[in-house]
């Protein structure tokens, strides 16, 4: 792994399109600004790992919880207030 030393406000370029700027340091926290093309996903690693674990748990729970689901299958949606709400297409990109 390449390790670089940077001061607050300084930036690292990765390729031509990705910029990583050190925004602020506070105790043991570092605030980092990332500018990348919209087709480059940027996620916190622990979030991706947590989602992977939750997916596996969800699959296991669905296997084991089959009986409990018998009654769930009778559950109806709660009355909707704005059910027509749909995912927004991002306008900021």
């Amino acid at each position: 792994m390449l390790v670089l030393t940077r001061k607050v406000g300084e930036t690292i370029l990765i390729g031509e399109d990705i910029k990583i700027t050190l925004v602020r340091i506070e105790d043991d926290q570092v605030r980092i600004g990332i500018s990348a093309p919209k087709d480059v996903p940027v996620y916190r690693k622990e979030l991706v790992e947590e989602i992977g674990i939750e997916n596996i748990r969800a699959a296991e729970a669905a296997r084991k919880g089959a009986e409990a689901l018998e009654k769930l299958s009778k559950v109806k949606p709660i009355p909707k207030h704005n059910s027509e709400k749909q995912p927004k297409k991002s306008s900021k990109d």
Binding site: K38, D39, P77, I78, K80, H81, N82, S83, K85, P87, K88, K89, S90, D93
Partner: peptide, 12 residues
Amino acid sequence: DFFPDYELEVCE
């Protein structure tokens, strides 16, 4: 159905 205020954005 359960979280009426849920919002998400789908990137380009």
